[in-house]
Nucleic acid binder design. Sequence first.
DNA 1: TTCGGATTGTTGACAGCGTCAGCATACGCC
DNA 2: GGCGTATGCTGACGCTGTCAACAATCCGAA
Lengths: 210, 210
Amino acid sequence: MTMSTHVARLVLMSPRNPEPTRTAVLAAADGLLETGGPDAVTLRAVGAAAGVSRSAPYRHFDGKAELLEAVALRTLTDLGAAIRTAGAAATTPRERLRAGCRGYIDYALQHPQHYLLVFGSAPLGVVDPAIDVAADEGFAAVVDLVDAAQSASLLPAQPVCELATVLWALLHGLAQLQLTRHLHEPRTVDGATRLDDLVDVALAAWSPIA
Amino acid sequence: MTMSTHVARLVLMSPRNPEPTRTAVLAAADGLLETGGPDAVTLRAVGAAAGVSRSAPYRHFDGKAELLEAVALRTLTDLGAAIRTAGAAATTPRERLRAGCRGYIDYALQHPQHYLLVFGSAPLGVVDPAIDVAADEGFAAVVDLVDAAQSASLLPAQPVCELATVLWALLHGLAQLQLTRHLHEPRTVDGATRLDDLVDVALAAWSPIA
DNA sequence: TTCGGATTGTTGACAGCGTCAGCATACGCC
DNA sequence: GGCGTATGCTGACGCTGTCAACAATCCGAA
């Protein structure tokens, strides 16, 4: 059985594809997280889903925490890309601001477990510098959004960095309160459509030319 | 040893104090959470800190999840009270709005682990209705804040419930991004003082009479 | 007063978890 | 051909949440 496994791995090992197990392990962790929540991400389950044993991930990651950090890094990169592509699709500055905000929230709602992995709890130890870089790039996307909106007089002329932080906090708050089920009926109505309305409420209230 | 334990328990058992172990267990979970983070909240550690055995909590809570739910309930109640007392201390409407917001953020920063327990991740199963009630009361405090501010023309005249949700999301976003260490140097400056400044930025931008 | 159920606490045990040590195999270079 | 390195596997350890079985206490009814 050991030999057959190795033969199978040999077949998968194409020359352009280095570290296929690392990729498989990461993909397995990704899938388990999204389908079963954080409790489903077990090294044993990850190994099984990736077709390897329970401790094979240790050859590619320094432990469970580092494996989850790699998942978080990819999530953060994807989130930044989601903001930019959503904003780029719009034509007018007003639509661009709205689309960027919706891109952020949509990504969070479509990847709830990944989003909560990144933003839900305090980091356990020292964070991978690459995560900081990815977070900086994501924040830069928000800064660009705010900058363009200020140029079009859609947001007040306050320091762009602070205003971007405020907007980020607002988007994060809306997304996370929704994901943790703290926004529901009598308090506010459920669903993504309603969340977009709340974004509009906030942006309209911020617009200097009310 | 068993008998001496029981004698000690008898001494502690004053007539007006029902369920002292339940209280001790809850307090132990509270302390362990705040000092050691979520990983330190072990039923064995909770039992030891409360002076009982590892499975004594099962007589008062249906399992670890329900114990943490009780901690979350108390946290949510305290948070609502913190908002109200902070707001009540202020004199002018403008100061009252600012004080309420700062009360929210200060409570979150002073009880980071408790705050993240409540708002950090999606609830595992069905939530205790008492938690919903406490969350409703906390939200009502924010609604009152917004209502009074609108009466003083400090916030635009949008539907109070939606505006309160937006403000809640903003406060939650600022607090949580700070707690999860996502706000730091080049992005924005660290510390509670800076966070209060960001609240002022947002409120000033929302103020119709800029 | 006595007795029996209900309440509350204890220990023993079990499966599942992350993690490491030790061993086996395959690859790539000399 | 031979060997170091990389990669994978199993066994084992301590820790966790949880439950079953047992003991002690309290309280209301006879």
